[in-house]
Write a protein that binds this DNA or RNA. Structure first.
Length: 268
DNA sequence: CTCCTATCTCGTCAGGTGTA
DNA sequence: TACACCTGACGAGATAGGAG
């Protein structure tokens, strides 16, 4: 949707092209390129709402950062400053704090309730630099997907049954994950992020491209969610503004009627 | 119960916008 | 100017509600 923005600064007075350029729209004469020269895009919801809120006291602003109700789970933000945050394929967040503390939370759940039961062990002589993370997978097939930066790698342990007996007893059939530095010897099937300069083979290039695409899609996914949240907030703001203006309008009409009665007394 | 339709939500793509 | 971000558009899947 393209919005015709006249010289008015207020975003309230925008109108669709169908409303402002009906003839051109009906004839289909103006192609998209020409239309883009004429029209400018509607400002973002955040911008519009912030503009409103600066004019109208009491209208909440859309914050630059994510609100507490969505986005990064609050328990992660408040309990420790994580150095890395991962998201699983089921939407859970995994935060790794400075001291190696690992927190798992569900988005949408609040506070501590979002914490997953988590078993973390370094016993059983793990490989150098490795931290083993275990938790109950919630997806139907039991598989979890991690998005990791290039500095670290998360590996699902394909040798769970070979784990030490004390570990197996503690975890049952839970899958095991390892968070390792890329320098650590990696098991088969590990996708390790490397700097572009170190890529040589077509396979590595393809893996890098895939990783970049996954990262881009994930970011865009989150951006779309955030955008929809802002849009809902914007619509709510508009609705409340309509309600306020209706009340004002009603009061003004009543006031006008009163003044009319005063200024024009009945002549019987 | 099954089918159809409307509505909603979500992920993805494309392209505009903002900024360093 | 490159890059990250934002958002409209679109399609797919889920869900609700009504009709037969």
């Amino acid at each position: 949707v393209w919005w015709h923005v006249p010289t008015v600064p207020a975003s309230w007075e925008v109108a669709t092209i169908a409303e402002t350029d009906e003839s051109a729209e009906s004839e289909g004469v103006i192609d998209s390129h020409k239309r883009r020269e004429i029209l400018s895009r509607r400002p973002s919801y955040r911008k519009i709402l912030n503009e409103i809120s600066s004019d109208v006291p009491g209208v909440p602003k859309i914050e630059e950062e994510k609100s507490e109700e969505e986005g990064t789970p609050p328990n992660i933000a408040t309990m420790a400053v994580p150095t890395s945050i991962y998201q699983t394929s089921t939407g859970q967040y995994i935060a790794i704090a400075q001291g190696g503390t690992i927190q798992i939370s569900n988005p949408g759940s609040d506070g501590v309730q979002g914490l997953q039961a988590l078993t973390m062990t370094n016993s059983g002589a793990p490989p150098p630099g490795a931290t083993i993370v275990q938790y109950a997978a919630q997806s139907a097939d039991g598989t979890q997907q991690f998005f990791v930066p290039g500095s670290q790698v998360v590996v699902q342990d394909e040798e769970t049954e070979l784990a030490p007996s004390h570990m197996a007893a503690a975890t049952g059939d839970m899958p095991t994950y390892q968070i390792r530095a890329p320098t650590t010897a990696l098991p088969q099937g590990v996708v390790m992020a490397a700097s572009p300069g170190s890529l040589h083979s077509p396979q590595q290039l393809a893996e890098e491209a895939t990783r970049k695409r996954e990262l881009r899609l994930m970011k865009n996914r989150e951006a779309a969610k955030e955008c929809r949240r802002r849009k809902k907030e914007y619509v709510k703001c508009l609705e409340s503004r309509v309600a306020v203006l209706e009340v004002q309008n009603k009061k003004l009409i009543e006031e006008l009627e009163t003044l009319k009665d005063i200024c024009s007394p009945k002549t019987d």
